[in-house]
Design a protein around this nucleic acid. Structure first.
Length: 574
DNA sequence: GCCGTTTTCGGCCCGACTGTTTTCAGTCG
């Protein structure tokens, strides 16, 4: 083991001791020793062999022993034990400006935060504000810090990639030589995670467009630039590929660059069997290489004997077969959603009042709201006590009495306790119009116990909706281990609605299972899980997942009008 | 943790700044 390696282990120990809250002087001793080793001119192994370590300033008896152990055995028991006490993700948290060991430790111990993703989510859920030593400002600064130090990761969340892409798209539209510009690739297909942004431009002057593109504000460096294609990396870390084609080639290219690869392969195969060749430049007759002119993607599909396939479905999951026999579903649209369920207020960990949320929902064109604050066991999120429920219900009743154009449903997001029971007695659960049952604790149960736990919750007659069924946080936490098929089966049997949590950090249920659930006849709810006004707009991402899961509006419970939903919920309670 | 020594335990760098808290803790450099 090199002295650099030894030094880095000593530094890491210093960090771990900081997390532990050890004396700052002890910590400094490790840091000093690490620095001393780095500055050492002699061979460390030699020093150890000759028992001369102790002669180095900053290395006393204890450190001499530890360094000797590292050099002679290649490991250090003390270090291993220390390391096992903290999740490795905490080191990433320490890199966030404004976060030191004390705060990281507090976050870990009170909120169980072990990764940057979890921390960001907790900030957005407004959970840090209540902690001692934390406040609104700290929370904001942490969010800024996370943005700042979020380096170019491999994948990006849908909403972030989308925002970046729309920005670039609108700038490209300002370039006079750009005739058309569209987002393509996985972003157009609305995948939950995006590797890079693909843009397609129609122009007769690709050189001009290319120069315009690579000099856009926010471009950090140019990865590649040729005659019709350029790739850049943005300061935010995301990569952007742009392709320029002629207006005539545009529809074919749009289809080609939207993918997926698998979808394209199958489509080309079908084209061939019909006597065509399909590529990014056109659809060609094999017999004489002549172009089949198409002015839109829909026309290309039509020429191949298919109905139009919306981009979200192009994953080679049966869409080509459906398009051939004309059974592509009429996918749900955002405008089909009539109301917003699963919204948090200031009663628990939301940022806004009921009145503010109603105003926002109305503004966005919705006609009802389903309020569902956290239940009492979710102490970290200010879960509601019985008296708070009473107060909230009085407020809702007063509202519903006054405003006849908008309706508020009384709900609760009840924790599913480790034994599978809900968080209140039946007499309290009975007061709600709907109950979203969600797991918020003990994530690490084994698959068997977790499945049993959730099945038990589904058996509870008060459970209306199963919230974020797998608990995943995209890019930061896998879902709980569980048997999702068994859970869907039970939901079908018990008539429980499954949530498509539209929060872009969750998008849970996963769209692949949305399709499964939909085919099983399970009803779904697209819910923003909003903790603030702006998060009501998350609905669009939930709709995207519903669309990717082949949903028409009739399987989405909140496509119902308020009066219809009242009947459904009432009937369910009976 | 180390160091030094008034030889066995007390001192170890600390000020600016921020945000929270109401006199100070935590972070940063």
């Amino acid at each position: 083991m090199t002295k650099d390696k030894v030094a880095s282990i000593l530094s890491e120990i210093a960090l771990l001791l900081e997390l532990k809250g050890e004396s700052s002087f002890k910590i400094r001793a490790y840091e000093n020793a690490a620095r001393a080793l780095l500055q050492l001119d002699e061979d460390l192994a030699e020093l150890v062999k000759e028992n001369r370590l102790g002669s180095i300033k900053g290395i006393g008896k204890a450190l001499e022993q530890k360094i000797t152990e590292l050099i002679t055995t290649g490991q250090l028991k003390y270090y291993e034990e220390l390391k096992s006490q903290f999740p490795p993700g905490l080191f990433d948290l320490l890199r966030i400006p404004g976060l030191g060991a004390k705060k990281v430790r507090a976050l870990y111990e009170t909120l169980g935060i072990t990764s940057v993703g979890e921390l960001e989510y907790a900030c957005k859920e407004n959970r840090l504000v209540g902690l001692p030593g934390f406040g609104q400002k700290t929370q904001e600064n942490i969010l800024k810090g996370i943005d700042y130090c979020r380096l170019s990761s491999d994948k990006h969340l849908l909403h972030e990639a989308g925002a970046a892409a729309y920005d670039i798209q609108s700038r490209l539209k300002e370039c006079p030589e750009v005739q058309e510009v569209s987002i393509a690739g996985s972003l157009r297909r609305q995948k939950e995670l995006i590797k890079d942004i693909d843009l397609l431009v129609a122009s007769d002057e690709p050189d001009v467009v290319m120069d315009f593109f690579v000099s856009l504000p926010g471009v950090e460096h140019i990865t590649g630039k040729g005659g019709t294609k350029a790739s850049v990396r943005m300061k935010s870390g995301i990569g952007v590929d742009m392709r320029v084609v002629s207006k005539a080639q545009y529809p074919y290219a749009l289809h080609h660059f939207t993918g997926s690869k698998e979808h394209n392969a199958k489509l080309r195969h079908i084209a061939k069997s019909l006597g065509f060749k399909l590529n990014e430049y056109g659809l060609w007759r094999l017999e004489d290489d002549s172009l089949v002119p198409c002015s839109s993607e829909a026309e290309i599909f039509a020429r191949l004997g298919m109905t139009y396939i919306p981009p979200e479905l192009r994953e080679d999951m049966g869409e080509i077969e459906s398009a051939l026999n004309g059974s592509i579903p009429n996918l749900v649209k955002l405008s089909d959603l009539k109301g917003v369920m699963h919204v948090h207020t200031r009663y628990s960990d939301g940022s806004n009042t009921i009145a503010e949320l109603v105003r926002e929902a109305k503004q966005q064109g919705y006609s009802y709201l389903g309020i569902s604050d956290h239940s009492r066991s979710a102490f970290y999120a200010g879960g509601l006590r019985e008296d708070e429920i009473k107060r909230q219900h009085e407020e809702i009743d007063a509202f519903n009495e006054k405003d006849k154009d908008f309706y508020i449903f009384k709900g609760i997001e009840s924790d599913i306790l480790p034994d599978g029971s809900l968080d209140y007695e039946d007499r309290i659960l009975d007061r709600f119009d709907f109950v979203i049952a969600s797991v918020h604790s003990r994530f690490k149960m084994d698959a068997c116990s977790m499945t049993k736990r959730i099945l038990a919750a589904l058996d509870n007659p008060y459970t209306t909706i199963l919230g974020h069924p797998t608990g995943r946080l995209l890019l930061s936490r896998d879902g709980y281990s569980l048997d999702l098929d068994a859970i869907l089966e039970k939901a079908r049997e018990r008539g429980v609605i499954i949530e498509i949590n539209a929060n872009p950090y969750r998008l849970d249920l996963d769209w692949r299972y949305v399709k499964k659930a939909m085919e099983m006849g399970i009803r779904l709810a697209v819910c923003p899980d909003a903790h603030s006004l702006s998060e009501i707009s998350y609905m669009i991402f939930g709709v995207a997942m519903a669309r990717k899961g082949w949903c028409e509006k009739d399987v989405i419970i909140n496509c119902l009008e308020a009066e219809q939903l009242k009947v459904v919920l009432q009937r369910r309670k009976e």
